[in-house]
Amino acid sequence: MSGTREAVLKRIRSAIGGSSADAAAREAEREVLPREYRRAGSLDADARLAMFIERLHEYDANVVRTDAARVAVAIGAILQEHGQRSVIVADGFPVEMLPDPITPKSGAAGGPAESFAFRREEKANVEDLDRCDGIITSCFAGIAFTGSIVLTHGPGEGARRFTLLPDRHLCVVRTEQVVETVPEAMDRLAGFATAPITFISGPSATADIEMMRVRGVHGPRFLDVVLVG
């Protein structure tokens, strides 16, 4: 096995004309690589958020804008609207953002009044995630230009499988987390480069059959975004 390693490296070195071990020269070369592309946005805050919302909509995501005082109400309304009863919340997601789970309200579409039951991520196994009605997380950043949500799976953001198995993902994004461009998001991620990172751009989708976009293949079919601030 190590024989192969040496053989491949030897072939590479012979192909590129010797070893490239001179770190200083290599770094100097890398420093001057052309990077003339846009690295910072140019929109003001309102336009940036408007773009973020517009592009999330284009992915068929549902977006609700609210302020810090009314997050819990907004979340409660979304859960009720979709008749979600069994909801799992990411570990570390702030309790104060959760609606009161025991207050019965009239259900969606005139159905019977239902209450939702919250469970924490740490108490849920894979089967629970597979069967639940939805999950709630916060996020690391949002990208307006691409309508993306970035998770580093830190506190409140859930483990990777957490945002994957359920059918419905409700994600809370604070307005100051929204940047305009991909390079700005990558810049914010620099300190988290070795954490698990997931970019989510709309619900899972496929266009493998006759190029018609179908939403929800294996990941969540529905994405609800609560934009706060």
Binding site: R55, R160, P196, F199, P203, S204, G219
Partner: peptide
């Protein structure tokens, strides 16, 4: 697409 639905980056 502006971005495909999922990008995963992870380390070890």
């Amino acid at each position: 697409e502006r971005m495909n639905p999922y990008n995963s980056i992870w380390t070890g």
